[in-house]
Amino acid sequence: MVIRTVLVSLTAALTLCACNAQKQNEQLEATASPLYTQVDDDPSWQTVKDSDALRPHHTNTTKGYKGSKVDVNNALVEVGPYANNPIIQDNLAIHTVGHASIRRDQFDRWTRWYQEDGNTQVFRLFKGEENLRNKRENAARIESFSTKDKWAPAQGVWREWAGRFTIIKSAGCALPHMCSIFQAKGNNVDHWSVMIRLDEHGNIWYVPRKEQPEIGNKKYIVAKNMNGKGFDVRVRDNGMDYEVFIDNKKVGYGQWERTEEIGFRWGIYVGRSEVTDDIMLFASGVTMH
């Protein structure tokens, strides 16, 4: 009886070891897998400009331009507390280099800059690209936003954005302006309260609208060397106060009073800087409430 018990225990232990070894191998294989694969290449910005896709220049156009296919490794990218949240379907729009508000039924015309795969949004800008929807210089962007999930400021009535960013390529996010990957933004250009920015080295920055030394608020790095890595973000805003959390850690807060309608924007916005190299960013499981 004792011998039989020992044999059974030994068999169970060997089975457990084999299962653990298999699980470890699977984890190593997943870690070694790429975050995405790309099918086909993308032409230069000059080629796109020379085509009819965005003509007439300096006006809004709905023609768009198709790009290479980005196949996201969803199992590797879509992890954490927001992994199972589907992409927002109703009222989602994108602000592109050629139009300020492209709706979902036209997304497939703009795949050079924006794609969706599983629960992940794919944002891309390419070297040399610039705003062509009006005459503002540089200002290249591909951002998404909800056309209806906006609100009037009301102190104490909090709205929240949450999701996971995965940084793929950041070389084009030149200092000092860098790339904004998130904005709590109103209709007026002066109405954003806080941004999260990405620099060319893959560092993530907390950027308040107004520095408030009395509460320690100023622009600073909150995560370093994030190329090829993901992180969770949560931002709360009520039109006066705001709070920013990275991987569930509060990294900044402040106040900026706004009088007009507010909403959230996320993706890639370069502002006054040039796009010095290609940029790619994933946003997974985004929610707003």
Rank of each mutant, 00 (worst) to 15 (best):
N20T: 14
I181R: 07
H289V: 12
W266L: 10
G80E: 07
H57F: 15
V97H: 02
R197E: 12
D52R: 08
I168D: 07
A152D: 14
A93Y: 06
N248A: 12
V70W: 09
Q24H: 10
K250L: 15
Q46L: 11
I181Q: 08
E200G: 07
I142T: 06
K185M: 13
V194R: 06
N138G: 01
R133T: 02
N134P: 07
Q115M: 06
C173V: 01
H99F: 12
R112E: 11
G216T: 01
I204G: 03
R197Y: 06
S170K: 08
L16I: 13
L132G: 05
R258Q: 15
V157E: 14
A30V: 00
N238P: 06
E260T: 10
Y82H: 09
Y65L: 06
S146I: 11
I168S: 07
S68T: 01
N73T: 02
W158P: 00
I204E: 05
N85E: 09
F264H: 04
S33K: 04
Y82F: 15
E78K: 03
L125W: 14
L35H: 04
L54S: 06
I262V: 13
A152H: 11
R141A: 04
G230S: 15
T61P: 02
C17L: 14
R124C: 01
Q115D: 02
S144E: 01
A32S: 14
K63S: 08
L92I: 15
K63A: 05
W161L: 13
L281M: 15
V72T: 04
N225A: 13
R159H: 15
R109L: 09
S170M: 11
W205N: 01
G128M: 02
D50T: 03
S44Q: 04
M195G: 00
V244E: 04
G156Q: 08
G263P: 00
C19N: 09
G172W: 13
N248K: 07
D190L: 10
M195K: 12
I88T: 06
R265W: 08
D278K: 02
I87M: 10
I196Y: 02
G64A: 01
E200A: 14
L125D: 10
L7Q: 05
V48P: 04
H95N: 10
S144K: 01
L125V: 13
L92R: 15
R234Y: 02
D190V: 00
E137K: 08
N84A: 12
I262N: 06
I88D: 00
K210P: 00
D277V: 02
I279M: 15
W256V: 12
F231K: 10
R112I: 14
T59V: 06
H191Q: 11
I268C: 03
N217I: 06
N131S: 06
D108S: 14
H57K: 09
P213M: 03
M280P: 05
A154F: 07
F282M: 03
A93E: 09
G98A: 13
E211V: 11
D50C: 01
T61M: 02
A162K: 13
N134A: 07
H95W: 09
S284K: 04
V79F: 09
E200P: 00
L92A: 12
V122M: 12
T31Y: 13
R133L: 10
P43F: 08
V97C: 12
W266N: 11
M195H: 06
E29K: 14
H58Q: 05
V275I: 09
I168P: 04
